[in-house]
Design a protein around this nucleic acid. Structure first.
Lengths: 182, 182
DNA sequence: GTCTATAGATCGATAGAC
DNA sequence: GTCTATCGATCTATAGAC
C-alpha cells in the first residue's frame, strides 16, 4: 500500500505518545506504522529526530487551527472556550491519551525540541488569556487564570494516566472549566 | 569509596528524573552514581528495573514521612497544609525538578510500576482531602479539591519544565494554595 | 564491594534490489 | 515507494579478577 507522509504522522504520534521518544524504537515504529525502515527513511531522511519534529509540528498545527485561533478570533469568547473544553476532552480521550508535548517536557527529550515545546504552551496560554480577557477578566487576572487552567489540564492527564481513572480527568476538568466561566 | 545502597538511591533518582527510565542507560547511571556496573548489580541484582522500583519506594517513603502522614495526623490541619506547600516548592525546586512518579505515569513505563505509581497519587489525594476535611470542607468537596490541587501541582511542573520558567510554577502553585485556604 | 572485559541482543541508520 | 539485509554503535546483564 502506498502511503503519504501526512498519513504516517498520526501513527508516529501514537508511537511516541505510548513509548516516549527513547522508548519508541524503530522496531516499535515499523510495527505501529506498518512501514519498513526504508519507507520511513524515505519520508524522514533525518531519522527518528525528524519524525518527532514533524509530529510536533503536526500537533501544533492541529491545535492552532482547532483551538488557539478560535480562542483569539471568535467573537463569542464564551463559545470558543466551550469549544476548547470539548476538543480537549475528545483529543486527550479523558486523560487516557497522553499529551505528547507535555510528556516530552518531562524528560531531557525537551532539550532536543525545546522551542516547539515552549511555543506550544506559550501559544495555548496566550490564546486562552485572550479569550478570557474578552470575557471580561482584567489583563493580569486573565494571564494567571490561563496558566492555571493549562497547567491543570496537563496535571489531569498525568493523574488520570497514573490512576487509570478517566473519571478523575473529567472531574478535574470540570473544576477548571468552572474557573473559565464568568 | 564504599557506598551503601541507601546512598545510591538519590543519585539513581536524579538519573531517572533527567533521562526517564528508557533514557537512563547504564552508562548514564554509572556516570551519575560513580559506581561501576559490578557495584550496581551487587546492590540491585534485578538490574535497572530493580533500581527504579527501589527509587520509587524511597520517594514514596519520603513523601509519606514528610507530607502525607502530617496531613493526616497533625492536629493543626492548616499548619500541615502550609508545610506541604513549602515542602512541594523545595522538593520540586520550583518546577525545575521533575516528579519521577508523574513522569513515569506518562509513558508505558507506568505499566511496569503501575501499583507504585497509582499508590503514590492515591495516598497524596487521600491525605490532602483528610486535612481539608479537618479544615472545614465537607467530604465530597474536600475530595474534589484534593484531586484538583494534586493535579495542579503536576501540571505546574510540566509547564515550568516546558517553558523553563520557575516563576510560572510559583504563580500556579500560589493559585492552588489559595484554594486550600479557608 | 568494586572494577574491567565482554557476551548477546537491540539500537538507529544505510545500501541496494525490486 | 517499499522491502530485506546488514553495518557499527550501544544496550543490559554477566563473569571473573582483585
Amino acid at each position: 500500500m502506498v502511503m503519504e507522509r501526512a498519513d504516517v504522522l498520526p501513527l508516529l504520534g501514537e508511537a511516541f505518545r505510548e513509548h516516549g521518544f527513547e522508548g519508541a524504537s524503530l522496531s516499535v515504529i515499523t510495527k505501529q506504522t506498518g512501514l519498513g525502515r526504508g519507507s520511513l527513511y524515505h519520508f524522514f531522511p533525518g531519522g527518528k529526530a525528524e519524525m518527532a519534529a514533524a509530529v510536533l509540528k503536526d500537533i501544533e498545527a492541529w491545535f492552532e487551527r482547532e483551538i488557539f485561533a478560535p480562542l483569539c478570533s471568535e467573537t463569542d469568547a464564551q463559545a470558543a472556550i466551550k469549544a476548547m473544553w470539548e476538543a480537549v476532552s475528545a483529543y486527550f480521550q479523558s486523560g487516557q491519551r497522553v499529551c505528547l508535548v507535555g510528556a516530552f517536557a518531562l524528560s531531557d527529550t525537551r532539550d532536543r525540541f525545546a522551542s516547539a515545546v515552549n511555543a506550544y504552551f506559550e501559544r495555548w496560554i496566550e490564546a486562552l488569556a485572550d479569550a478570557l480577557r474578552r470575557l471580561g477578566h482584567d489583563g493580569q487576572r486573565a494571564d494567571a487564570l490561563a496558566e492555571q487552567v493549562v497547567a491543570g489540564i496537563q496535571g489531569a492527564i498525568t493523574l488520570a494516566r497514573a490512576r487509570r481513572d478517566a473519571g478523575l480527568f473529567e472531574r478535574v476538568v470540570a473544576g477548571l472549566r468552572a474557573m473559565t466561566e464568568k
